[in-house]
């Protein structure tokens, strides 16, 4: 099994070599002017899309974060109870 890092590096280098071959005319492909512009900007476009996807994931996880407020209330109550019981048995809190 190849490590994940090398899988990504292999994929990235294959993609970038195809991109370099297209942009610097190592293969004879005729592009129209608008197609060429898209090919040149494509890796950058992917980068921006990845950034946007990461932002969406962060926002979604913040929005649906499970922060268990009832459990926190319950825990605070239990701490209070424990403190009361300990003070009634002569324990001093600093």
């Amino acid at each position: 099994m190849i490590p994940k890092l090398f899988q990504w590096l292999i994929g990235l280098s294959v993609f970038m070599s195809i991109w370099v071959a297209l942009v610097f005319d190592y293969v004879a492909v005729e592009f129209s002017k608008s197609n060429r512009q898209i090919v040149v900007l494509f890796p950058f476009y992917l980068l921006v899309v990845f950034a946007g996807y990461s932002l969406i994931v962060i926002g979604y996880r913040v929005a649906t974060f499970n922060d268990c407020q009832e459990a926190s209330e319950e825990l605070k109550k239990q701490i209070q109870e424990a403190k009361q019981e300990l003070t009634s048995r002569g324990f001093k809190f600093e």
């Binding site: 996807y53 932002l55 969406i56 926002g59 913040v62 929005a63 649906t64 974060f65 922060d67």
Partner: peptide
């Protein structure tokens, strides 16, 4: 569930991106 402010900020981020 997240509290009100977190939910607002989160959905704003999703919407903006």
């Amino acid at each position: 569930m997240a509290s009100g402010k977190d939910r607002l900020i989160g959905w704003c981020l999703v919407f903006l991106s």
